[in-house]
Design a protein around this nucleic acid. Structure first.
Lengths: 342, 342
DNA sequence: TAGCCCACCCAAAACGATTTGAGACTGGGA
DNA sequence: TCCCAGTCTCAAATCGTTTTGGGTGGGCTA
């Protein structure tokens, strides 16, 4: 009973609870709760008394207790491969900005693209009771196993669809973006256009978009002009080396992401090739680094911030009950940004 | 009573609680709790029965209820100016990696360097019941007002001290790093060494280190050679423009961070100045972009990952009760990384 | 057989809020 | 005087754990 607290407490961190406030205001905890939540009307005079007591005592509601009772944590989780990657950092920020105003916090976890970490993190945030989950962890989301009966927590996947009744998706139009980039390259007159793809099974949309454009432009792509990298600068460097060592050296290279494009640029510089005269390079994502390199990288913008923002809106619309229904898919365009390398 | 649950439940998301497990195993919830926590011994046979029941039912403890009772959320908060800034993203990752293994999650919030957001976020995470807070939000941490009786939550400040009984600090040795960079510049023979500082009151260590080295090297710095930027590339660009327009044009510029250094580099390129022959440029932080520009940026490494990691260790040592005592300060060195711009 | 100690296990009280059925006051009208 | 509707307010149950003081039974010694 809060009413008889020893005043000799030296370092006793007495948390002020709703009961203290009720005591002070001479009402019941119920009433205090009601003035706070507004779920039932309370008389103006009592309301004022309660507010005063709250102010005097410096009462702050305990989120945890509230969460236990209401089952709402006002927390979203976002799972990304690596927060260190600027693309995902920006995406995360877009999400946070979207939900912050509604009082939602965001918990972000880095999966490193590893299945077990992905699963572990998923379970972890589930146990922590987040109200929703945003997946931006590659294209493996669909392999996540959902526990039985978990079909109550909204999920939104970025960059992938997912068979799940409550799953919304927001995807960048990789394919169209790649098609545009490749078509642009063809229009510019480049004849031997190669591509540095991502690892097997990843970034397939970017590959098919490229292929489609090449076919439409009547530019058959020999198999040795389709090489793979691992998304990193170093991977792009190695892939580009392989490409440049070919007897039939390409005069344009479309890279599945900017980091690899920068790696490719390194090779061009090392070989003394001038860009875009000797070889054109186009990236994908439009990360900060794209404007840092010289010449600045021509690339396809992957709207990281918007993706996160849209995901936040989708999640919010379900959490607030504003929308209940089948999974929606919003697709965001990836415009070509012409700069200095093509 | 869990024992009589309707089996006709269609989409009823019956959460399996500790009571279900107890029922199934034919023991009391207490016993289940004990096998889970190991706070008291339970007979091997019952232990096994309970474990089986847990497995069969797929029981997962409810973190929220646990948190309410134990007052431990196993969550840390880290407040940074902007998660979009790679430096802070890396720092955050260092922190997360340090505490992840111990079962702690990290909540990160972006303050945008605004006081009110800083305070709001601080209150927010406090209310959410985090077990510790890591401040990496500029050097304004000391102005945060702690509520009364909050002196129970461990705090660790990165880059700043703080008068608070439970506050540990981990700080990069900005001053020594700057001194080294400036001394290096002087040793190289540059005679008119200027500096682009951060905004007033920020990054003072970097300025004093620079000044100390200049004094030691008997190179008086005229006032107009000490200009300010706002940490951004654009700010560095403008500051550098001002510097280059001076009648007594500097032949070396030390920038308080890399972004501004890159902005300065832009100016040099635009002016057709060759780096480092016509003008040397040294940055601070060693962000990814430093190795992307050409020539690669000579800079002082700000050990972002290590800072976060050390902060995590400090926090953990208190949370686990391994350490209880006065605030500690660990200072991490900032080594000069010689590359192409000086 | 009484006495004692262990080794186990349980009941019940927290933790701090929300929720809801129901009681206690008003006035006003019949 | 009685009743009714309307307004507030309250007590008690609930959310799912952890925590402890205590109870139960069996084995051992004397």
């Amino acid at each position: 009973m809060p009413r008889s607290q020893s005043t000799t407490s030296l370092a006793a961190p007495v948390r002020v609870t709703i009961a203290h406030v009720a005591d002070r205001a001479g009402v019941s905890p119920t009433t205090v709760s009601h003035v706070l939540s507004g779920k039932r009307v309370v008389g103006e005079s009592t309301r004022q008394t309660v507010m005063d007591a709250i102010a005097e005592l410096g009462y702050r509601p305990n989120h945890v207790a509230r969460h236990l009772r209401t089952r709402q944590s006002h927390m979203l989780a976002v799972l990304v491969p690596d927060i260190t990657n600027p693309f995902y950092a920006v995406l995360t920020r877009g999400l946070a900005d979207a939900v912050d105003a509604a009082g939602y916090g965001t918990f972000v976890g880095s999966t490193d693209g590893q299945h077990d970490r992905e699963r572990k993190l998923f379970q972890d945030v589930m146990d922590r009771g987040v109200d929703g989950i945003v997946f931006a962890s590659g294209e493996l989301a669909s392999e996540i196993t959902f526990g039985p009966g978990d079909h109550t927590t909204p999920i939104v996947c970025i960059g992938d669809h997912l068979e799940h009744p409550l799953c919304d998706a927001v995807i960048p139009d990789d394919e169209a973006g790649s098609r545009e980039a490749a078509a642009f390259l063809a229009r510019q007159g480049y004849s031997r256009i190669a591509m540095i793809q991502g690892p097997p099974r990843y970034g397939t949309g970017r590959t098919t978009g490229f292929r489609a454009a090449m076919q439409a432009a009547k530019r058959p792509v020999p198999a040795e002009h389709m090489v793979r990298g691992d998304w990193t600068r170093k991977g792009g460097y190695q892939a580009m080396q392989a490409l440049m060592a070919l007897p039939e050296r390409p005069d344009a290279v479309f890279c599945a992401n900017d980091l690899m494009a920068i790696g490719a640029l390194d090779v061009a510089h090392e070989l003394g090739l001038s860009v875009p005269e000797d070889v054109a390079i186009v990236g994908f994502d439009d990360v900060d680094a794209a404007t840092i390199v010289t010449p600045q990288l021509t690339t396809v913008r992957n709207p990281a911030y918007d993706l996160g923002n849209a995901a936040g809106d989708l999640a919010l619309s379900r959490l607030t009950g504003r929308y209940r229904g089948a999974g929606r898919t919003v697709v965001l365009p990836c415009p070509l940004v012409e700069r200095g390398t093509a």
